[in-house]
Design a protein around this nucleic acid. Structure first.
Length: 877
RNA sequence: GGACGCGUAGCUCAGUCUGGUUAGAGCGCUACCUUGACACGGUAGAGGUCGUUGGUUCGACUCCAAUCGCGUCCACCA
């Protein structure tokens, strides 16, 4: 039997245990076990990232669920993996190249890819080790990467079939173009930042010389591509201008004045310049009005030849300056206003985007969106918190075709080939050896790759080997729950549901839990610029993984943000230490013959403790099932600290030190149950204790690793009922009143005084009273205890007293009792008022009425006792 | 413009869905205690008219409405 240290040393425990678990393959799914499957897939972290608090939270919750289910008798599977993170990764590696003074164009596609693959291998290792540090009980034998060959096959399959069904198509459309990363983006990857800018009012002269119209714009350089000016059809001011031509300044073009409903006559001058090539609204209007589209800004964000020789080749922002200067010198600027407007930028690169018409691949997701909407409406997928269903509905109802092609090297290459000879497009699983149309053997594969989220969408079934009909797929799909953060509701969750319904004909998960945002100790969003980032790695180094996990879990109330702070981490560390020391105390008092299979001997304390455990385990299990992790953690926290440590161990100290083997066996059993219950939350400290205490005491056939043992709710010891459940709370009340009397009368806690109580049922605890309150004696006698030499306190159903000849402060005691009398009187008054109210009696539930009556009579009884003591007179018990 | 979340103790947060005792926790604070599991501990305390105003109800922190303050998302304004 190893001596336990005075404090839990998490540093050595952590690495040791993860290795042991992994070696024993505790976390590997066991399809052949005959157990019911339970599965969850990790939201694959980007290979660009390193562990932050958001991950730490998600992994903690995943792991609590997975370990809980594993212990609950399920064949629990948590699939780990990482995401290739297309743009993000390429941006990072290109930045590295830049540091070496190179660009990606100095390398061939293959060389560049090789560089990224090497980088990926390193990062993947890092991420996997971080998962291990978190204690994540993932099945490493099933780990996946979104660009694994199997997953690539799934991607190609979806692409090819979608194409053949017409759901994927290629064509020119307006997209958001990132001129820095040189790629198209989907609408979701665009964010809008507020910018202080100007609103330029520009005069466009009428071609007939009869004046001008004024248009307002935030982007003057686009005027070079204007092909019309629109006014509202009902706008009287411009009625006469309809159909007339304007001379577009700085060009030699004539453009028409046209009418369209989308114009707001109230805004600006009520005239809108139309630049169909560089604005989605203008493009839509131009289509309605049959206006042509002139591209004046190219993919490099420089002005094209269409912009005129004077501006051609200028960067768009440089061109803006020049256009304004030129207009000013022509006297065509009517006015310039300060104006705050939203500028679209790439979420990844931060570059200002350019709306451009470009030929890209798109996916029509309308049918899938409808089915996904239905899946949530019908309850096939349940959201926690539920209010995200509104957001879900709104987005899916307004969904647009998804631009899936990216002009990146890193990603799943689009399986499309064009015949070099006849230019026929072939979309196939494998490269065609020759063109099916003309027989030509030279074909060129599309250069583009797919949006990262394309492969992420397939994750819940691609990880199981789809499109092959694998055993894993059959067994573990659909998964039971998805835990992720709400900021990828559309990016990922929606697309997984759409893909799952389309390709598996079944939802990918039955529940979605949206985890909270982790903020700093003042509820501020963490950011590098603010410098308030709490690093999970640092937290684990300082306080231990268990402390980090427990802190996150106990704060994880659904739908609310989490504030992580040093003091919270300390509190959790202290909790782990408390558990450790309780175990240490138990362990140091156990002889070797005390084992878990010895039938325990029960006294009142054991009956009570059993009841508490039973209740708390049921509460905790229910809370976990409902994703109320904070409730589960808090329940167990108080079970350990208040019930087990403060109450039970104190009562059982005598037994623990001098009791029988059977009495000690009961204590051991309780500790064992607590370890099993806490293990999903704090796996390391519990496993470490388990080894130190249970080694050699486990029944034969019981796994020696705590990680393999069962959730304790069905432990036979918990079936034992009996005893008087009210006794221990009564004892606690009596004890704390005695302590209060000592403190209130300024008695040195160490000074032993005689005490009395008139509740004989508490007499079995007289030793406990004496040792816990440092009493000289504890006597029980019925009837009145009042006496001028005694300090008295009223408890439920009776009195406690301290013999304090000469020390007692009668005035103080009187004041205290009077205060209690007044409070009780007031409470009784309000209860009586309620109970005398005919409306209450006729309308309230019978149960509520009875509860109030019961309460009133309890308070009255107590008041009587207080009055009796105050009267100093005789008092019938 | 549309939708959603939050406002409870000095701080950070539970509780509100499902109305009914004296509204809880952790940290912090005050006093005392180094007692053989634990000072990462123990005991006793102080501290809240639950943002505001109305309404519903026998009864509101809880339900409804309005309002103020903070935050988020979606759409869009040339």
């Amino acid at each position: 039997m190893r001596e336990m240290d005075k404090a839990f040393d998490f540093k050595t425990a952590q690495a040791r245990w993860y290795e042991r678990w992994e070696l024993a393959k505790v976390f590997e799914a066991k399809p052949e076990s005959g157990k019911q499957p339970w599965s969850i897939v990790i939201p694959p972290p980007n290979i660009t990232g390193s562990l932050h608090m958001g991950h730490a939270l998600v992994y903690t919750l995943h792991d609590i669920l997975t370990r809980f289910k594993r212990a609950g008798g399920f064949d629990a599977l948590w699939v780990p993996g990482v995401d290739h993170a297309g743009i993000a990764t390429q941006v990072v590696v290109e930045r590295q190249l830049k540091a070496e003074g190179k660009t990606r164009h100095d390398l061939t596609r293959e060389q560049f890819l090789e560089k990224i693959w090497n980088w990926k291998a390193q990062k993947q290792d890092d991420i996997e080790n971080q998962l291990r540090r978190m204690g994540a009980s993932v099945d490493w034998s099933r780990k996946r990467f979104t660009m694994d060959p199997d997953l690539n096959r799934a991607v190609r399959r979806v692409f090819v079939e979608s194409f053949s069904k017409g759901r994927i198509y290629k064509g020119p459309r307006m997209i958001q173009w990132d001129p820095v990363s040189q790629t198209a983006l989907s609408d979701l990857e665009v964010s809008y930042v507020e910018k202080q800018g100007k609103l330029w009012h520009i005069r466009y002269p009428l071609s007939d010389g009869a004046g001008h119209v004024v248009v307002a714009t935030t982007r003057p350089e686009t005027m070079l591509g204007d092909t019309g000016v629109a006014v509202h059809p009902g706008d009287e001011r411009y009625k006469d201008l309809l159909g007339k031509k304007l001379r577009l300044p700085l060009t030699d073009r004539l453009i028409p004045v046209v009418a369209d409903d989308f114009v707001d006559p109230q805004f600006g001058t009520g005239c809108v310049k139309l630049t169909p090539a560089h604005d989605p609204n203008d493009l839509a209007a131009a289509k309605r009005l049959n206006l042509e589209s002139i591209t004046v800004i190219g993919f490099d964000a420089k002005m094209t030849a269409n912009a005129g020789t004077k501006y051609k080749g200028l960067d768009r922002f440089e061109a803006r300056k020049r256009v304004i200067e030129d207009l000013e010198s022509l006297g065509l600027i009517e006015k310039i206003e300060d104006y705050t407007h939203q500028v679209s930028v790439s979420q990844r690169s931060g570059a200002p985007l350019e709306p451009l018409v470009s030929t890209q691949w798109f996916m029509d997701v309308k049918d899938a969106a409808k089915a996904s909407l239905e899946a949530v409406k019908s309850g096939k997928i349940k959201f926690t918190p539920q209010h995200w269903e509104n957001v879900w509905e709104h987005w899916l109802n307004n969904i647009q075709d998804w631009c899936i092609s990216r002009q990146l090297v890193w990603g799943h290459r689009i399986p499309a080939w064009t015949c070099d000879s006849c230019e026929k497009l072939h979309v196939e699983m494998e490269a065609p050896s020759k063109c099916a149309a003309c027989g030509h053997t030279a074909l060129t594969q599309d250069q583009d790759t797919l949006d990262t989220w394309f492969s992420s969408a397939l994750w819940p079934f691609s990880v199981f080997g789809w499109p092959e009909k694998t055993e894993d797929l059959k067994r573990y799909y659909p998964t039971n729950v998805l835990i992720t953060s709400y900021d990828i509701l559309f990016f990922w969750v929606a697309r997984m549901v759409m893909a799952g319904l389309t390709w598996m004909n079944e939802v990918p998960f039955k529940a979605v839990y949206f985890n909270s945002l982790v903020r700093d100790e003042h509820g501020q969003k963490m950011s590098k610029t603010k410098g308030n980032v709490v690093d999970p790695i640092q937290s684990m180094d300082d306080f231990g993984t268990d402390a980090l996990r427990f802190s996150l879990a106990i704060m994880a109330a659904p739908g609310t943000d989490i504030s992580i702070s040093k003091s919270r981490l300390e509190a959790s560390r202290n909790f782990c230490n408390k558990l450790w020391n309780a175990a240490r105390f138990v362990q140091m008092n156990l002889t070797e013959n005390v084992t878990l299979d010895i039938a325990p001997e029960f006294g009142e304390a054991e009956y009570w403790m059993t009841g508490r455990i039973r209740e708390c385990l049921a509460d905790a299990a229910r809370a976990i099932e409902q994703f109320r992790f904070h409730e589960a953690a808090e329940t167990l926290y108080h079970l350990v600290w208040d019930d087990f440590c403060s109450t039970y161990i104190e009562l059982a100290k005598v037994n623990l030190q001098n009791g029988s083997t059977e009495q000690k066996a009961a204590i051991l059993r309780f500790l064992d149950i607590l370890l099993r219950a806490l293990h999903p939350f704090v796996p390391f400290v519990t496993e470490e204790i388990h080894e130190a205490v249970m080694n050699g005491r486990l029944p034969s056939g019981e796994p020696s690793l705590l990680a393999e043992r069962s959730w304790p709710e069905n432990d036979p010891i918990l079936k034992i009922e009996g005893g008087n459940s009210a006794l221990i709370p009564k004892f606690q009340e009596a004890l704390s009143n005695i302590l209060r009397l000592k403190a209130g009368n300024s008695i040195d806690p160490a000074r032993r005084v005689p005490a009395l109580c008139n509740l004989p049922e508490l007499s079995p605890f007289s030793e406990a009273f004496k040792s816990l309150a440092k009493l000289e004696s504890m006597n029980f006698q019925t009837g009145d205890l009042t006496s001028p030499t005694r300090a008295i306190a009223v408890i439920e159903g009776g009195l406690v007293a301290l013999e304090l000849a000469g020390v007692k402060d009668p005035a103080l005691e009187k004041a205290k009792l009077e205060k209690e009398r007044d409070k009780l009187t007031q409470e009784i008054q309000s209860l009586k008022a309620r109970l005398n109210n005919p409306d209450f009696l006729s309308k309230a539930a019978q149960k509520a009425i009875e509860a109030q009556q019961q309460l009133a009579s309890e308070k009255e009884a107590k008041l009587n006792v207080v009055l009796g003591v105050l009267g100093g007179g005789r008092h019938e018990q």
